[in-house]
Write a protein that binds this DNA or RNA. Structure first.
Lengths: 235, 235
DNA sequence: CCGCCGCTTCACAAAACTGTAACATAGGCA
DNA sequence: TGCCTATGTTACAGTTTTGTGAAGCGGCGG
């Protein structure tokens, strides 16, 4: 597994540590020491993944993350956030903002590399247009068709994108903010509740094509106070 | 270290060899003799790791690997590829396709087990964002699910947060003030007793899913005059 | 220009979750 | 033992959150 990785940290020592570990693991490494450079290199260097420190002077990792998500060319760039502490609130915020994973310092080189690889692997299919499958449901990005047991399921654009996003990480809970960010795009002003309405429609569409006979059933699970997750429920 | 391992090989002798070595090392083993069965078991059996032969009639290890990677539910399944020859080109191809490690035949039992263990160790943190486990109870932050012996336990938001907090530091005693601060957020004024009520609810939910047969029992221990702690009590 | 289609918001009902009060117990101590 | 305090539990009424039908809008193709 190869890949070009952009690392961003204002502390030279930390930067060096990251570089060494990632290069040892066979990755090509780009580096930046502040948010501005990071944004520049993210556009110019076409990295496959970004590892960025949470706290930095000037533009923090949060800001960089937001900005990248709002630019079309970097909207899908996988991002791993580094944080000094493992506070749950930080973690939630980080993921809300659009980070794909979150590592707390200190971390082992092994963990770093494992997460980088995992994330690259996870995101590749979206880029490579591979068919996503979960609990009997098929979603084909290249044809933008969704089907179950060969039967086609028609979805509106929004429903399709919601489903596609959730199928990338089944079972994972997405907050409404995350969904709005990634499906509608960052900075768009829409009510949270709009997500609910689309989820309702998505549910109806999926239900209409539910597998006739048993086995596991695909459902959109509501996590009260948080968001939604694609999930398989025992029949 | 425990784990469920799916082994796939079209040669019964080889399959037996793998099974024997892995079971001796304390792993639970599932097996399949062809690609189709392998795919089926990979989904249904929820193995933690897959060991598959490179060359097989019909669907080869490569194909199986590809397909597994394209399915959301098995995208992150660690895979070890077995190959007769140690050709570098094979190795590269294998890793490219998504295998996580590569063993050439013939191999020593010791090598096999060592690699399996190494891979499990590496992938455990990366699979889920650190699933919390204590006394048979599992809490997965990314799916926000709590389960015991595979059975889901539904918790309200407050109960979930309380449990999550306490599972980060099992056995540690938390005062009501600490719990209110961390779960409700400081600045919120609620009666201390509210914590008691939620603890009661949490206890009830956990009890309802209590392990049927012995081993240690998870309890919420009350520290009179102070607070609560998650604790394991001998049966 | 009309009509269809999908998106958003609104409104209202249903469901889930909460905090508090009240009452029942248990623990500690003189 | 008897009293006083801390905790366990339950019931309930109030809130908050979610599901969903329906209306309003705006774009686009015919």
């Amino acid at each position: 597994m190869s890949g070009k990785i952009l690392i961003v940290d204002d502390e030279p020592a930390q930067l060096e540590l990251l570089r060494y570990n990632l290069e040892t693991a066979g990755f090509e490494v780009l580096q930046a020491e502040n948010g501005a450079d990071a944004l520049e290199m993210a556009s110019a260097g076409m990295p496959d993944l970004l590892v960025i420190d949470w706290m930095m002077p000037e533009a923090s990792g949060i800001d960089v993350c937001r900005i990248l998500r709002s630019r079309a060319e970097t909207k899908a760039l996988p991002i791993i956030m580094l944080s000094a502490r493992g506070e749950e609130s930080d973690r939630t915020l980080g993921l809300d903002i659009g980070a794909d994973d979150y590592i707390t310092k200190p971390f082992s080189p092994r963990e770093l590399v494992a997460r980088v690889k995992a994330l690259l692997r996870r995101s590749r299919p979206m880029l490579a247009d591979e068919v996503l499958t979960f609990a009997g449901l098929e979603l084909n990005p290249s044809t933008m068709r969704v089907s179950r047991e060969g039967k086609n399921i028609h979805l509106g654009p929004k429903e399709y994108q919601l489903l596609a996003l959730m199928m990338e990480s089944p079972e994972r809970v997405f907050s409404r903010e995350q969904l709005l960010d990634r499906v509608w795009g960052h900075g768009i002003y829409v009510e949270d509740r709009t997500v609910d309405v689309h989820m309702s429609r998505l549910r109806r569409a999926l239900n209409a094509a539910q597998a006739s006979q048993g086995e596991d059933t695909l459902v959109i699970r509501t996590v009260r106070g948080t968001g939604y997750a694609l999930s398989r429920e025992p029949k």
